[in-house]
Design a protein around this nucleic acid. Structure first.
Lengths: 260, 260
DNA sequence: GATTGAAACTGGCTCAAGCCAGTTGGTCAA
DNA sequence: TTGACCAACTGGCTTGAGCCAGTTTCAATC
């Protein structure tokens, strides 16, 4: 649009530029799932390109699974969908007994050095699937969100996002003190008697989002394994939701974890 | 090309028809991995279409992962590559003790009815990865190959291909008698004292081949889980190689199998 | 013999136009 | 009210042209 942008992306072909803008609109929530995209002819007119070019942009999004095109009707933003659902299970708490997180223990078993990098700790509004599990109060809809990247030697292997209801995070004084990395927030909560079981609710393989691909240094076209954990107490009340996103080719670190 | 074909595929667009022919050439082995495809301009001239149409055909194969296009060099048949490698492990022989194959037992657990359909039993030359494991004699390179489709209720879930060295298949009289379906060739060999351990050597997720998609009734774009087993005796000599290809969304039937 | 450089290839991407085939919503007649 | 039909939309696919940017090859030059 302006000089500045053109200089930076001078070689970005128009089809990809249009796709970028549409993708941005989708990922930012401006275009919600189910929303209809402008028709190919409208896109072409709006961006001043041939219809073929606009069509190519839509195709890029279709290939990426963000959009579904219906002959005669239009193109629509797709509801998120897993490529593979591998199954559900529970896993044992024996790793805590060993004094290590499962990830670090697996790294050690495989002769690698595991470490954490904290990307952010902040107050946030949880995504719907997390809010639903956590039963966050409708008024506040507020959680403590922490994002980590886990490394095995020099490879970024896992991205971990943890969500805890804001009331619990403040009520337990989680924010007032240093959180030991090797246990994570999960471990601190457990020390306070909050967590009794951790349920591995969903295991999926899917294509990574742009930021995930960046953090995990993924080449294009490589899928990730996506695991959603919920931590519950004896009464089944959820205190924590954790999402692991990991390089599929490193998932031995995940799947070698013994099943209860 | 001729009247007959045109009547049958009158509505198949040229781009897809070209893609079909190239795919056929690749899957039949006429174009081996690494082979160079004709250039887009040559394809267009050969089929009497615009270059864009030939280009679209190549793109279809690129999207399907069969071909890789290199700017300035050409398009080449890709070497088969796994999308995801999940890991290696061994699994226990306890299912035989239960008198059921793992598949049937899992079906029962999940309240489904499991059954087999035999597609073929024949003498064949094994693919290289199987020949390598089986250590088949260089001269004959001959195995007994059996192909099954496994059903859970009315869903085709698994396709199973079993390879046994021809000498063993004949030596044990496997061909002279009815092979009990619930055990498979593996079970018959075990009865004869041949099989001591079954090693799950590779677990991959990948896109299905055309025939696999057909047998498993897979919609386009859905990946499969691909597991390669090798059965060995005490001395580590391989007697059988089995390949399981299953719907990824039914793989609970596989992954719920306890690990030793 | 080594280096350079141009020509002849390759795929990447776009344009402007057109026809086909589905979907949708309205109009008009029964 | 119901049904048939048509017009205006949608995406699917093709054409034939052109320019760009990589790679390869080979002949001319150093």
């Amino acid at each position: 649009m302006n000089d500045h942008e053109e200089r930076e992306s001078v070689r970005r072909p128009p089809s990809k530029r249009i796709a970028d803008e549409l993708r941005q609109a989708i990922e930012s929530g401006e275009l919600t799932p189910g929303a209809k995209l402008p028709s190919e002819r409208d896109l072409a007119a709006h961006y001043g390109t041939a219809r073929n070019t606009a069509r190519e942009a839509v195709r890029i999004l279709t290939d990426a699974g963000l959009v579904i095109a219906e002959h005669g009707r239009g193109a629509y933003v797709r509801k998120p969908q897993a490529l593979i659902r591998l199954g559900n299970d529970r896993y044992s708490p024996k790793y805590r007994d060993a004094g290590l997180s499962p990830f670090l223990l697996e790294c050690a078993k495989q002769g690698k050095t595991g470490r954490f990098e904290v990307l952010s700790i902040e107050r946030a509004t949880p995504p719907t699937e997390v809010a639903g599990r956590l039963d966050v109060s409708e008024k506040t809809k507020s959680v403590l969100r922490r994002e980590n990247v886990f490394w095995a030697d020099d490879d970024p292997v896992q991205r971990v996002t943890t969500y805890i209801p804001w009331a619990i995070a403040t009520g337990t004084g989680l924010l007032q003190e240093e959180v030991p990395h090797q246990y994570g927030i999960h471990g601190v909560l457990e020390d306070r008697g909050h967590v009794m079981a951790r349920i591995r609710e969903e295991i999926n393989a899917r294509m990574p989002r742009a930021d995930e691909a960046r953090h995990l240094r993924l080449p294009p076209g490589v899928p990730v394994i996506d695991v959603l954990h919920t931590s519950v107490d004896q009464k089944g009340k959820a205190y924590e939701v954790t999402r692991f996103v990991m390089r599929a080719d490193m998932s031995g670190l995940l799947y070698d974890v013994p099943v209860e």
